[in-house]
């Protein structure tokens, strides 16, 4: 189908719209389906975008950091910490290394043990925060050297738990996009069914139009315009409702975790604008294909 044909079908002869009766259950069905599907697409889109953002954030935030834990008897803790900092200071790819203060360690543990933790009476390991520089450190080499010089040191480069989290976020993003495709396919199928039902219900009208010399394009155009506009308005309402729903979701916060981050941010809010247009496009092609097929059958 050429662009000129699409334009002709969409603009067409507005008088021709009158030849198809304006009411019927297919009208309500198309509006409802387009609206409901657009509503679902908004949420699938929000989920896909939020998952992508989270995957990117987790990957970038955790990729450049590592933690060194010193498990040693209290009397050796300071010496081993000092030795570890020396090793880290000599290691290429380590931008900075800093031993956490007692207050910082209490802050880390307080969510589990409460704020009144008697740190000095517990055998708590010393944590060293490592920030990687470019081009990154040789983790295996560093582990070997620490093993030899700081026997109580355990290096955690976060890979072990970062990768599954990032993979989970990426999977959610894929699921979001697959959902959008499935919703689009289901919309096309349902609009095709509605268009077929409408064409069958109006078989006599088609016969009259044929009798008076109407071309297939004229007849198909009357149905295509009807379904395209219905799908557009249905999808527009569904999209607006969906965006309102997303707007009412709780804002992202550390306390809320992942669930509070689902939504649109910044320019993402512009993306749902394309949903009614895509809905109309899906309806246009589904109805056009159904009309051409039906008109051939009726000849």
């Amino acid at each position: 189908m050429t662009r000129a044909e699409v334009s002709t079908l969409l603009r067409g002869d507005t008088r021709a719209n009158r030849v198809v009766p304006p009411t019927g259950y297919t009208a309500h069905l198309t509006l409802f389906v387009a609206g409901a599907m657009a509503f679902l697409v908004v949420f699938a889109l929000a989920l896909a975008l939020a998952s992508g953002r989270i995957a990117d954030r987790w990957a970038s935030e955790l990729a450049g950091a590592a933690t060194l834990r010193i498990n040693a008897p209290a009397e050796q803790l300071a010496a081993q910490t000092e030795a570890a900092l020396t090793v880290l200071g000599q290691t290429p790819g380590v931008a900075s290394a800093r031993a956490l203060s007692a207050e910082e360690q209490v802050a880390l543990l307080s969510p589990w043990f409460g704020p009144d933790l008697p740190l000095d009476t517990l055998p708590i390991p010393q944590l060293i925060e490592i920030t990687e520089g470019e081009p990154g450190m040789d983790v295996m080499g560093l582990r070997l050297r620490l093993g030899a010089e700081v026997p109580g040191a355990v290096l955690d480069d976060h890979t072990r738990w970062r990768e599954p989290l990032v993979e989970a976020a990426m999977s959610l993003r894929r699921l979001g996009w697959i959902s959008i495709l499935l919703i689009g396919g289901a919309t096309a199928a349902m609009i095709t069914l509605a268009a077929n039902a409408s064409l069958a219900a109006n078989a006599q009208i088609i016969e009259v139009l044929r009798l008076v010399g109407a071309r297939d394009g004229f007849i198909a155009g009357a149905f295509v315009r009807r379904f395209t506009y219905r799908a557009f308005f249905g999808a527009l309402v569904g999209t607006l409702l969906g965006m309102t729903g997303v707007l009412l979701l709780p804002e992202a916060s550390d306390a809320g975790g992942f669930l509070t981050g689902v939504g649109f941010q910044g320019a993402d809010w512009l993306l749902p604008i394309v949903i009614p247009i895509l809905g109309a496009a899906v309806a246009f092609f589904a109805t056009w294909a159904a009309a051409r097929r039906k008109l051939k059958e009726l000849s």
């Binding site: 008088r15 009158r18 030849v19 009259v208 008076v212 010399g213 004229f218």
Partner: peptide, 17 residues
């Protein structure tokens, strides 16, 4: 005929198409 259209519109249908 197309029952939802008036007589004049029905008769004018060939002009429209």
């Amino acid at each position: 005929f197309l029952d939802h259209m008036t007589l004049a519109e029905n008769v004018a249908l060939p002009l429209m198409v």
